[in-house]
Design a binder for these strands. Structure first.
Lengths: 208, 208
DNA sequence: GAAACTCTGTGAACGAGAACTCAATCACGG
DNA sequence: CCGTGATTGAGTTCTCGTTCACAGAGTTTC
């Protein structure tokens, strides 16, 4: 199931819609209108309709969207119907926090593999996961893991990325501050905490 | 120093430029061309020129941009010339990781205040910072802190945000999954780790 | 000192995404 | 069974940001 040409921005909003649907109070009604959904998520209602219309006729005019059906549909689009296992590379401060992070469950994503360079950490067991050395990344393809989370120092990021790509990883969530060069069929999503924070002072009133 | 109308996207790239300049090998030359800068950061060279041109004539035709001068200039634009203190709200997994995070130093931002709800953590000292209770947020204005990092459960986010805004905070880095409602003069930057991760499966080859 | 070369700054074209608008569709009540 | 009200889906417009192309300024070379 692959769709024509959907804006990345739309894809990015789908998980937000999903979360909105989960939190929608089940007050008897089976359906929700684009306006209601828009209000919850603080976007405009035409935006919601347009986003959803990329994937065929999901709603029914005069009524709205069937909540359960819509939820299932979005999960199907995002390929979140079956659990995805993800590998975490780097068990430093951030890595440890991510492993304990509970916000992935809603989206059926579960970190079940951890790699680390530091020999002192290798072998330790956290949350039933044994920390492995980075050279074991090559075994990911055999384990059917195609998503990786990169939380290591910038200097090693390209090196590890190459290993991940070779192991068949198709999606990388990059917390590193460096640009990752990957083949076209691999998707990288960057989260640069430093840059985001550095933008804030610009918006402060002058002299603050 | 406030400039006409600069795209948010441009502002977001400035810290990246800054980092690129820092890592540029000091090989005798004092200047760098838009092309060189573009190559390092994997953007197009007209993009670099346009971004920088919003802030007046910084470069010299035929030569390029004086590295030191440009660095200073970007820091001035972003208001990063003097150190900014930031308050961290929430000392959970993520909060603890952020406090230890070293990536903020490049941008002259330093977390020097920590608030937490859990009474067992209040009073503890980490990195010379004493963890305070959330009710002390109101004292931020007196301390001249106008940037906050929000790393708490979604349920309490709006509550704490209101407290922050009342205390004169003008910029919030929001790791919470919820939308924050703030007055127009307060800037919120959202980092939603769950959503970013949830997007990845969409891009995987079907059936992976 | 002039010509050739390099690189910036900017106006204009282009493209993507968001907001608007309205016709078509469906449920429901009389 | 038909009219009324509600809401979707899509075509259009608008806004924002990126890319392009070129004029002009500075530097180097002969």
């Amino acid at each position: 199931m692959r769709y024509h040409k959907v804006p990345d921005e739309t894809i990015r909003r789908l998980p937000v819609y999903l979360r909105g649907l989960c939190s929608f109070p089940n007050n008897g009604s089976h359906s929700i209108s684009s306006q209601q959904l828009a209000d919850i998520l603080h976007v405009k209602s035409p935006q919601v309709r347009k986003d959803l219309s990329y994937f065929g006729d999901i709603g029914t005019p005069g009524v709205g969207y069937d909540i359960q059906k819509l939820t299932k549909h979005i999960r199907a689009i995002l390929q979140l119907n079956n659990v995805h296992c993800a590998a975490l590379v780097g068990y430093g401060n951030l890595g440890a926090a991510l492993l304990k992070y509970t916000g992935f469950g809603t989206f059926c994503i579960e970190i079940n593999t951890v790699f680390e360079k530091d020999p002192r950490k290798i072998g330790r067991v956290v949350r039933n996961i044994k920390i492995e050395e980075v050279s074991k990344i090559s075994s990911l393809s055999k384990r059917g893991i195609s998503i990786a989370i990169l939380a290591i120092p910038a200097a090693e990021s390209q090196d590890v990325t190459d290993k991940l790509v070779n192991a068949g990883v198709g999606g990388i969530l990059n917390f590193t501050s460096s640009y990752l060069s990957v083949p076209a069929n691999v998707k990288v999503i960057n989260i640069d905490i430093g840059v985001s924070l550095a933008c804030l002072p610009y918006y402060l009133p002058v002299g603050a």
